[in-house]
């Protein structure tokens, strides 16, 4: 099956030819399939944000290519802008991009740029607002909302374009636990309703471990691991060496193993409960 989005040997260098030259991405390749939830982790400066901006054609790779449905998004002058309607990107702190008088108008900005008809725009705005739970303040000014509400309005602004691939750069940064949970739930709802591909950059390993089916690990502009959460967190020691964190439960179980207890590596709470129950059960029999 043809992957939805394919990144082929992408290399990108900032300020090439100056003393400030910096290789942000080096020969990065991977595929995204329809309906997948992919997590991207890597420490600050590993090239995550640069990579995200390549996926929707905001940055043009120095070499390599990005294929959407098998066709290069750099094929001609207008294809990159068209690709942005199918690959939605939510930046870090997206609430800073709000500018319209009402929440409704702001969410409608994207669909309007797509050239949709008014009734279609209306439909999409209401649907997107519903997904993130801001239907009650469509006529309010976005600047009168709380931080978490603003964030959700900004995300709705991208959802309203109904992208097939939704990329989120740390969507929960700077929110309280309740706000984080809410937004993560909204994202999952969108994925399920549209069979959309989600790519989420996050520093919260437990969120990544819990939600995603696949994890890309970036280090120094290269993809180091591209595998299921279970397999990626198997490399706990290497991840820690890269300056990355691992889920708290994984740490606890790693320590247990160091203390001489024979436990498998674990990366989610459910797994941990299961493993512990097994051990307890085993003890009883013994």
């Amino acid at each position: 099956m043809l992957p939805l989005l394919e990144v082929k040997n992408v290399t990108y260098t900032y300020s090439a030819g100056t003393p400030f030259e910096h290789k942000a991405l080096q020969d990065v390749s991977f595929c995204l399939n329809r309906g997948e939830f992919v997590g991207v982790i890597g420490h600050t400066g590993s090239g995550k944000s640069t990579l995200m901006q390549h996926l929707n054609g905001l940055l043009k790779p120095n070499s390599g290519d990005i294929l959407l449905d098998g066709k290069s998004i750099w094929a001609d002058k207008t294809s990159a802008r068209k690709a942005r309607f199918r690959v939605g990107l939510v930046f870090q702190y997206p609430e800073y991009q709000l500018f319209e008088e009402t929440v409704y108008k702001d969410i409608a900005f994207g669909p309007k740029n797509m050239g949709l008809k008014d009734d279609e725009i209306d439909l999409r705005v209401k649907k997107a607002a519903e997904i993130v739970g801001v239907s009650d303040f469509l006529e309010k000014s976005p600047f009168d909302l709380s931080g978490g509400q603003k964030r959700r309005v900004a995300i709705a602004g991208v959802l309203a374009m109904e992208p097939e691939v939704l990329i989120l750069d740390e969507p929960t940064a700077g929110l309280d636990p309740e706000g984080r949970e809410e937004i993560l739930k909204n994202i999952e709802t969108y994925r399920a309703s549209q069979n959309a591909t989600i790519v989420m950059v996050s520093h919260s390993m437990s969120d990544i471990a819990r939600l995603t089916q696949r994890i890309l690990v970036l280090d120094d502009g290269r993809v180091v691991y591209d595998d299921t959460p279970a397999k990626v967190f198997d490399h706990a020691e290497q991840l820690l060496k890269m300056g990355l964190d691992i889920p708290e439960v994984t740490k606890v179980f790693l320590k247990l193993r160091q203390l001489g207890l024979d436990v498998p590596p674990v990366y989610s709470i459910d797994q941990a409960v299961e493993t512990l129950n097994k051990i307890r059960g085993g003890d009883r029999h013994a």
Binding site: N56, R84, F91, P94, N113
Partner: peptide
């Protein structure tokens, strides 16, 4: 960049 991502 953020507005371009929304098709501006």
């Amino acid at each position: 960049s953020a507005q371009k991502a929304r098709g501006a």
